Simulated assay, not measured.
Amino acid sequence: MFDIKEHVDTLAKKFVPSYRFLRSQKSTIDKSHSIQTELNSNSIKVLSWNIAKNNYSEKWLEDFLKIIEQHQPNLIFLQEFRLELGLTNVLEWLEMSWDFAPNFIDAHHQSYSGIFTAATTSSLNKKAIITKHHEPIIKTPKVSLITEYPLSHNKATLLAINSHLINFVDLNKFKIQLHELELAISAHRGPIIFSGDFNTWSRKRAIILDKVVTKLGLIPVNFVPHESRKIKRFLLSPPLDWIFYRELSEKKVSAIVLDRIYSSDHKPLLAEFCYTDTLNN
Score class of each variant (00 low, 15 high):
152 S>W: 04
163 S>L: 07
144 S>I: 10
173 K>I: 02
122 S>T: 14
136 P>Y: 04
137 I>F: 15
155 K>V: 12
139 K>P: 00
135 E>H: 05
130 I>C: 06
139 K>S: 07
164 H>L: 10
142 K>S: 01
141 P>G: 03
156 A>V: 08
176 I>G: 02
122 S>F: 05
154 N>R: 13
122 S>G: 10
173 K>H: 11
161 I>A: 09
143 V>N: 03
144 S>R: 10
142 K>E: 11
150 P>C: 03
134 H>D: 07
132 K>A: 11
127 K>W: 03
154 N>G: 02
144 S>V: 12
125 N>Q: 07
164 H>R: 09
172 N>M: 08
135 E>L: 04
154 N>T: 12
159 L>C: 11
166 I>P: 03
138 I>P: 01
166 I>F: 12
162 N>I: 15
154 N>M: 09
165 L>S: 02
135 E>G: 01
143 V>W: 00
149 Y>H: 15
159 L>H: 10
133 H>S: 12
148 E>W: 09
138 I>N: 05
168 F>I: 01
165 L>K: 00
160 A>E: 02
123 S>T: 10
161 I>T: 12
162 N>R: 06
152 S>A: 13
137 I>Q: 09
176 I>S: 12
162 N>M: 12
134 H>R: 11
173 K>F: 06
127 K>H: 06
159 L>N: 07
153 H>E: 11
139 K>R: 12
152 S>L: 15
174 F>A: 00
163 S>I: 12
163 S>Q: 04
167 N>K: 01
160 A>F: 04
128 A>T: 05
139 K>A: 07
173 K>T: 05
137 I>E: 10
166 I>R: 00
